[in-house]
Write a protein that binds this DNA or RNA. Structure first.
Length: 137
DNA sequence: GCCAACGTTGGC
DNA sequence: GCCAACGTTGGC
């Protein structure tokens, strides 16, 4: 079981959109590092859904419901997508400011490489963030 | 809206 | 294969 964090600009695709659609393709990733992470995802893995630019906070959790497959619209044949399904909304969103201010989360890729759109989260970080968010697990 | 940081492209 | 130029992302 692995944990991840995926980013979306709410103006383009928000958590509410994800909940309405329930399951969607997580496509449009055109970055090598992010693609490596997409390929490492397995069905049943959980991922934080993060709002970039607006909000700048983790708002919900999605589950990987289909593993990596190639994007037929990508002419290079290099990039692809996974399917994700909305699982639950965080009772209290966890903001970027909060994450940056917390020594326990200072090693997160979100802090160190803010531009990577698909990134791994350690089990310790996952557990800690879900507790900050008010989720009991 | 600006701009720093980063990734990618393409010329050599 | 290197690296300068360019484009994009995302925080502020």
């Amino acid at each position: 079981m692995n944990y991840w964090l995926v980013k979306s600009e709410p103006g383009k695709w928000s958590w509410d959109d994800q909940v309405k659609a329930k399951t969607t393709h997580w496509d449009g990733v055109r970055n090598y590092m992010a693609t490596i992470n997409l390929k490492a995802m397995r069905i049943g893995d959980d991922a934080f859904f993060y709002h970039s630019n607006e909000g700048k906070e983790i708002v919900g959790i999605v589950e990987i419901s289909k593993e990596f497959y190639l994007d037929p619209n990508d002419p290079s044949g290099r990039f692809g997508m996974v399917d994700v399904t909305a699982v639950e909304k965080l009772p209290t969103p966890v903001t970027l400011a909060q994450i940056k201010a917390d020594p326990k989360l200072s090693e997160m890729i979100l802090v160190k490489n803010s531009r990577l759109s698909v990134q791994p989260v350690t089990p310790a970080e996952w557990k800690y963030i879900t507790s900050l968010a008010g989720l009991k697990k």
